[in-house]
Computed example of a mutant assay.
Amino acid sequence: MKLELDLNQLLGMEYDEDGEPVGRRQLRDEVVAIAAATLVKEVRDEAKRSVRETVDSTVRGEVRAIVREALSKPIQQMTSWGETKGEPTTVLELVRTQLEAFLSGTTESRDRYGNQQPANLRQLVEQATREVISKDMREAVIEAKAGVTKEVTQRALKAAVETLTQGLNV
């Protein structure tokens, strides 16, 4: 297979009968324009990437500072009726006290829907382990029941066939 490209036709160049270009377009100018456009695109893409990285880095730093400041400022807890509750405290202190209460809890509780809630980390791990094991055990029991049912059915059929064909000379 032979492939021929006419750059003049591809670029829309025209020449007169003497071989001189007609109009203002020349192959060299077209190549330079294409190369310049490619170079500008590459520079633009690199500049966009660089600006995006700089902006992302700056925004992350600013967000970190804002979050750090928000976590260290005191907040006032409120009741569901909008009344103040307790002394103002920081979010970090609230997290610490909740975590401490969870880790040192001793009795399980139930939420308003009756769902069991573990009181400490040990109970949480036990509950998760129980759920995983019970799921795996449930699947294993279902498989075992199916296997037993199949085996009993096959043996019963075999025994019935033997009983019915006993005494027959087939």
Rank of each mutant, 00 (worst) to 15 (best):
Q117A: 05
Q98N: 15
V51T: 07
A119S: 14
T84I: 09
T84Q: 11
Q116D: 03
E53F: 06
L103H: 14
V31P: 02
E62Y: 12
K85G: 00
D6F: 07
F102E: 00
D136A: 15
T90Y: 01
L27I: 14
R52C: 02
I66A: 14
G61E: 05
A33C: 00
T163W: 04
L71H: 09
G147C: 09
Q116Y: 03
I34H: 08
R68M: 06
R130M: 08
E162V: 00
M1A: 14
T107H: 07
P74S: 11
D16T: 06
A70G: 11
S104G: 04
L71I: 07
T89L: 03
K145C: 10
E14N: 10
L99H: 10
E126W: 05
D6Y: 04
L71S: 02
M78Y: 11
L157M: 10
V43I: 12
Q26C: 04
K135L: 13
E53G: 05
A160Y: 04
I75A: 09
D18V: 04
E131R: 13
A35N: 12
S134M: 12
Q9G: 01
G23K: 03
Q127S: 09
I34P: 00
A156P: 00
L99Q: 13
V63I: 15
E4Q: 10
A146Q: 14
A65D: 08
L157I: 04
S50R: 13
L103C: 13
T54I: 04
G167A: 03
P74H: 09
V132W: 10
A146R: 15
V40L: 03
S80D: 09
E53N: 11
Q116N: 08
Q98L: 14
A160S: 07
E108Q: 13
L168R: 12
K73P: 00
E17C: 05
N120L: 03
L94N: 11
L5T: 08
M13D: 03
R60M: 02
E131Y: 07
D56K: 12
G19Y: 05
G12H: 05
T149Y: 07
Q9N: 10
E62C: 11
L103Q: 13
E100W: 09
G61T: 08
E14L: 09
M1N: 10
L5N: 03
V125S: 02
D45E: 12
V170W: 05
V95C: 10
E62R: 14
V43F: 03
V51N: 03
V95S: 06
D6L: 04
N115D: 06
S80F: 09
E139K: 15
I34T: 05
Q154F: 05
L11N: 04
L5H: 05
N8T: 01
D29F: 06
S72Y: 01
F102W: 03
R24T: 15
E14H: 11
E126D: 11
K135G: 15
R138G: 15
T163Q: 06
E4Y: 08
V141M: 12
I142L: 15
Y15C: 04
E83D: 13
